[in-house]
């Protein structure tokens, strides 16, 4: 009898479903759960899927440095990418820079990395942030590392497609610059999400529950995905997949 689904496994399976149909997926630094989801999507796809994990030896196909990721993205060669944020607001603006008045922010995060570019270029950007609190999901971000939407005059083939948090899964309507709650993870309620979100979002009166991965998916996560992700994230793999 397989052990019950862990929260990380639910997130991996939920993110992987959002990647269905993608041919090329890129994953940024410090992203073991998105990385696992990309590997699961590849594992379960009937057509070939190419996954590039940044800053991992052997995990990507860049021979010209990571500039290649950006060049490929600008040419439409990258179908999906993950972004997060120290703050995310209801219009899908993301902040990776800090809290308070810029530049002397009272809390400083690493910086915007490639977000100000990839958010514009990659068609299916999936926002992922495990912590779902009002500290993260704010009415307005303090610094816009990358805007959720742009005016019609701006060249922008890409943008936010969905958002997954520790509590639920959202879609994003670019025309209205608004999130819609699509499903609530098992064990949580719409009220939990509303209480922990600093902005309004659309939802059904009784939102769906995020489905847990089936037995075959769980086996794939605990087998080939666990083995592969351990190469880039050994500490994560040890913690989540101790048996693998």
């Amino acid at each position: 009898m397989a052990s019950p689904c862990l929260p990380e496994e639910l997130l991996i399976a939920t993110l992987a479903r959002l990647l269905e149909g993608c041919r090329t997926i890129a994953v940024g630094v410090s992203s073991p759960i998105p990385g696992s989801a990309a590997l699961l999507a590849k594992e379960q796809s009937r057509t070939p899927v190419h996954v590039d994990v940044l800053e991992s030896f052997g995990g990507n196909s860049f021979t010209e440095g990571s500039v290649e990721l950006f060049d490929r993205a600008a040419q439409g060669r990258v179908d999906a990418f993950f972004l997060g944020g120290g703050q995310i607001d209801g219009a899908a603006n993301i902040n990776l820079v800090g809290v308070g008045d810029y530049p002397a922010t009272k809390v400083r995060w690493p910086g915007s990395f490639g977000s100000a570019y990839l958010y514009f270029m990659v068609p299916r950007v999936i926002l992922f942030r495990e912590e779902h609190t009002r500290r993260v999901f704010v009415p307005n971000v303090d610094f816009i590392s990358a805007p959720g939407v742009s005016g019609e005059e701006i060249y922008r083939p890409g943008g936010p497609h969905a958002m997954v948090t520790g509590l639920g899964r959202f879609s994003f309507d670019k025309a209205r610059a608004r999130f819609r709650l699509e499903s609530v993870h098992p064990g949580y309620t719409l009220t939990d999400i509303a209480e922990n979100t600093g902005f309004d979002f659309d939802h059904d009166d009784v939102p769906a529950e995020t489905p847990e991965p089936d037995a075959a998916t769980l086996a794939a996560i605990r087998g080939p995905v666990a083995e592969e992700i351990a190469k880039s994230y050994p500490k994560f793999a040890e913690r989540v997949f101790p048996a693998a």
Partner: peptide, 29 residues
Amino acid sequence: TCPAIYAALQAGEKGIPFIPLRGVIGSDV
């Protein structure tokens, strides 16, 4: 943002004064 630094260095490599880049417009960056 990462591609801006790469692109600006590539302009440096080529000895040209500037280089255009997609994206970024409308960000606080």
